[in-house]
Design a protein around this nucleic acid. Structure first.
Lengths: 189, 189
DNA sequence: GAAAGCCTTTACCATTTGGTAAAAAGCAAT
DNA sequence: ATTGCTTTTTACCAAATGGTAAAGGCTTTC
């Protein structure tokens, strides 16, 4: 819970009472590897904050290939935020790629926090902007790099992650086949 | 000017007086092809709204290659927003790729609008989130697609743009060489 | 209209990456 | 330990892309 509070306080000031109000709404949720936090075709039910584990955002392209477009690890918010706010069905999946422990907020509780705490919308707005920028900064360079460079920058950006999750997910995130990734890993060693 | 107002009103309600206050601060700026709107190493001086023309965001990687990471065309805001807000030096360039006509707001005027109009920060926050999401949606799929598919989706996402700007910029946006793009264009025809 | 400069296309070959298939390695359940 | 299942690695060949260089086109300028 402390991690969540520290995270939020980076983006704005809150007093003890406000913090307690927020943390009072958080429920813990455990997800097993491969379970979904949010699914395409369903309305996202909650906003999460990852205490332990890693999740990925993924979707299927028109060839039926599964594309991982981002990973989120410990001490970060995870949510299909636009769809959650609007309460409309999602078009992508958020899936646990390791066992996870999360703090979650229901839509009702999330709205109550917004209606109670002045400045909460500004804080969450900043958090979302931050997450989006991070996603862009991580993903955008992948377009112009060759496969080996993409793999090396993945290792830098997500230290240790490559040892915790299936390589097929890494390959799909990096836009290459599993076989190419395997070959690259051999050459890099 | 009407385009600007319509754009803003998508993200929140403003009365006549507020709208006049905002538009009163806007100055027009003309940029010739290749001129910079914002430069790496300099502090971004203004927020722009494109009335005519197209700009691109670009930077140089560690091999000295120039990478175009996004295009912005008519009726969109253009700004190195994070750096502008914080008034710190930029790490990338924003360059006109055609002659452009813009409405611009200085930092001082932008802040005055924020201090005067209740809800302005919320509106600009939404606008920025929107731009970031659009960037992600456009750029992210490029990682996992082959060169021909990337070119075809570029044509869809920026109709006509390919005829207005140098193909070398398109190639760098799509993460391929100019020669590859040329070959692909021949095969697609 | 000739010259100069830039942008675009072509061509050739080397290298990288993808597709398919099979083998090897790791893991879990019995 | 054996079996069955999934993940990862290899191998082979085809296809796509990059690098270098040169030629062709298109403007601009004088």
């Amino acid at each position: 819970m402390e991690e969540l509070v520290n995270y939020i306080l980076q983006f704005g000031n809150l007093n003890r009472q406000q913090i307690d109000f927020i943390t009072g709404k958080a429920k813990t949720l455990e997800l097993h590897k491969d379970e979904y936090f949010s699914e395409a075709g369903k309305i996202p039910r909650s906003v999460g904050f990852i205490l332990e584990g890693v999740v990925r955002f993924c979707y299927y392209n028109n060839k039926g290939e599964e594309i991982t477009h981002s990973f989120v690890d410990e001490n970060n918010f995870v949510s299909d935020q636009q769809r959650f706010e609007a309460q409309v069905v999602a078009s992508e999946y958020i899936q646990a790629v390791t066992d996870c422990k999360l703090l979650v907020f229901s839509k009702k509780d999330w709205d109550e926090i917004g209606n109670t705490i002045v400045g909460w919308d500004a804080i969450t707005g900043l958090i979302l902007k931050n997450c989006l920028l991070k996603t862009i900064e991580r993903r955008s360079p992948l377009v112009s790099e060759d496969a080996t460079t993409r793999y090396l920058s993945f290792i830098e950006q997500f230290p240790g992650l490559v040892n915790r999750i299936p390589l097929s997910y890494v390959a799909s995130y990096l836009g290459m086949t599993q076989q190419s990734l395997s070959r690259i890993r051999k050459n890099v060693r």
